[in-house]
């Protein structure tokens, strides 16, 4: 197997009395698209948010186990969590552009980490907007508020904004569920282009989407990891009964 980027060991997570993740052990390969697949409410999003410790924001959450990013256990590290989070771009279910103009949206991450040279910033804005296929649409509107963009444009802006801080990993939580089919396809194609440079983790409940983009699949059901492995084997020769049933569409 290829190099492992994120190694989750014995992860248990409870909210109040409810156990959301049960003894999760998964390996996320470097520079591939890993798809976390499963029906709604199975803990996919929670697992994703554990990876950059956004679970810190939620009340009554208890976590045990470890999440190794390269060689750091991000659940127990004494290192600054903001530095670790910066390595992971996040694309959420619906876009959350920052309440400022388009240019500032992309440069926000750079400016807060002390990179303020105007000319460099402008170059980066152009580069990352091109990466997200937004440059031609937006090059004359950089001073417009991000709130006036369409949802599909906002999501691509969020992608550009995330890429601009040089992450190693892209975490995407059902990134296309609020988008129209054309914008969705654009995002999926972007992931396929980007996977040579980034480790991409995509949460989805769409089997079709998983088939289209996955290199590696993690199938979850009711807080447990049922099966994981390379996409080809997962879709062609699933081992577990529950996986077979899910792939046949017996439940979703």
């Amino acid at each position: 197997m290829q190099k492992v980027k994120i190694d989750v060991r014995n992860l248990n997570l409870t909210i109040g009395k409810q156990q959301i993740l049960k003894d999760v052990n998964v390996q996320i390969p470097d520079k591939k698209i890993t798809v976390i697949l499963g029906p709604s409410g199975c803990g996919k999003t929670t697992l994703l948010k554990s990876l950059n410790r956004l679970i810190d924001l939620y009340p009554e959450m208890k976590v045990t186990g470890s999440i190794m990013l390269d060689d750091i256990d991000i659940l127990h590290t004494k290192e600054d969590i903001t530095e670790i989070r910066k390595k992971m771009g996040l694309l959420s279910q619906r876009p959350y552009p920052l309440p400022m103009n388009i240019y500032k949206n992309i440069t926000f991450g750079l400016r807060i980490s002390g990179r303020r040279k105007k000319r460099n910033l402008m170059k980066r804005v152009e580069h990352y907007l091109k990466q997200a296929n937004l440059w031609d649409e937006l090059k004359d509107r950089l001073k417009d508020p991000a709130s006036c963009l369409s949802i599909g444009q906002q999501q691509r802006l969020c992608l550009a904004r995330g890429l601009a801080v040089d992450p190693e990993i892209i975490l995407a939580d059902e990134p296309t569920s609020a988008l129209d089919p054309i914008s969705s396809t654009a995002i999926e194609e972007k992931f396929l282009e980007l996977k040579d440079y980034y480790t991409i983790v995509v949460v989805t409940h769409s089997l079709q989407q998983a088939r289209r983009i996955a290199d590696h699949v993690i199938f979850m059901y009711l807080g447990e990891v049922v099966e994981q492995g390379p996409a080809k084997e997962f879709f062609e020769n699933p081992i577990e009964e529950r996986t077979k049933a899910y792939l046949k569409g017996l439940f979703s």
Binding site: L90, Q93, Y96, F108, I112
Partner: peptide
């Protein structure tokens, strides 16, 4: 989600509070 977005860009809590 807006807080999550700012943290993912490397914002500290005070940057998220006072800038976003």
């Amino acid at each position: 989600g807006l807080l999550e977005a700012s943290y993912s860009l490397g914002a500290t809590r005070s940057e998220a509070a006072y800038k976003i």
